[in-house]
Simulated scan of single mutants.
Amino acid sequence: MAIEVNGKTVETDEEGYLTNLNDWDRDVAQVLAKQDDLTLTESHWEVIDFLREYYEEYQIAPAVRVLTKAIGKKLGADKGNSKYLYDLFPYGPAKQACRFAGLPKPTGCV
């Protein structure tokens, strides 16, 4: 599978995750979000940027429980809870946000 971003073809796997993490940029994230009928807001970017930093540091995409805790520590308790994250990423905060962030599917996600 592939998506078109600014005239460039970006390869994805059958679930829509990038096959090459280096293909990611903010435009790619916008296209992936549009496929899910979402418009990325500053709040989405906060979580996406957090995920990219986390991945860079630990070389792993966090599962939802780890993500929720880590976001709570960094961005505050009002954002480190499932309801807030599911409001932003209705298809699953870890799964959907990692896809938008150009990361592999989080460990433990079905």
Rank of each mutant, 00 (worst) to 15 (best):
Ile60Asn: 04
Gly76Asn: 15
Leu75Cys: 08
Gln35Lys: 15
Leu67His: 02
Cys98Asp: 13
Val10Tyr: 01
Leu51Gly: 08
Val47Met: 14
Leu32Asn: 00
Ser43Gln: 12
Thr107Asn: 09
Tyr58Gly: 01
Gly7Pro: 07
Leu32Lys: 02
Pro90Phe: 03
Thr39Leu: 15
Lys83Ile: 13
Thr19Ala: 07
Val31Asn: 04
Val110Ile: 06
Ile3Gln: 04
Leu103Cys: 05
Phe50Lys: 03
Gln35Val: 14
Tyr91Leu: 11
Ala94Trp: 02
Thr107Leu: 09
Tyr55Gln: 04
Phe100Tyr: 13
Glu14Arg: 03
Arg52Tyr: 11
Thr9Val: 15
Val28Gln: 00
Glu53Leu: 14
Leu38Gln: 14
Glu14Trp: 10
Val31Cys: 01
Tyr54Cys: 00
Thr41Asn: 13
Leu88Val: 08
Ile48Phe: 10
Leu51Trp: 08
Asp87Trp: 10
Thr68Leu: 01
Leu85Lys: 05
Val5Phe: 05
Trp24Leu: 08
Lys69Ile: 12
Thr9Gly: 03
Leu75Tyr: 08
Ala61Phe: 05
Cys109Val: 01
Asp49Ser: 12
Leu51Gln: 00
Asp23Tyr: 00
Leu85Trp: 10
Lys73Arg: 04
Gln59Glu: 05
Glu14Pro: 00
Gly16Val: 03
Trp24Glu: 02
Pro104His: 07
Leu103Gln: 11
Glu46Tyr: 02
Thr19Met: 05
Pro106Val: 02
Gly16Ala: 13
Cys109Lys: 01
Glu42Met: 11
Glu42Thr: 15
Arg99Ile: 07
Arg99Met: 11
Asn20Phe: 02
Phe50Gly: 03
Pro62Cys: 07
Tyr84Ser: 08
Gly76Gln: 15
Ala101Gln: 04
Lys34Trp: 12
Gln30Glu: 15
Gln35Ala: 12
Glu53Val: 09
Ala2Glu: 12
Pro104Thr: 04
Lys8Glu: 10
Lys69Ala: 13
Ser82Asp: 06
Gly76Asp: 12
Asp49Cys: 14
Asn20Glu: 11
Cys109Pro: 00
Tyr84Leu: 11
Glu4Ile: 13
Leu88Thr: 06
Val66Ser: 00
Asp23Phe: 02
Gly72Glu: 14
Asp49Tyr: 12
Asn22Pro: 03
Val47Ala: 00
Glu4Ala: 14
Lys79Phe: 11
Leu88Asp: 04
Asp36Leu: 05
Cys98Gly: 07
Gly76Met: 11
Glu46Ser: 06
Lys8Asn: 11
Asp36Lys: 12
Leu38Gly: 03
Ile71His: 06
Gly76Glu: 14
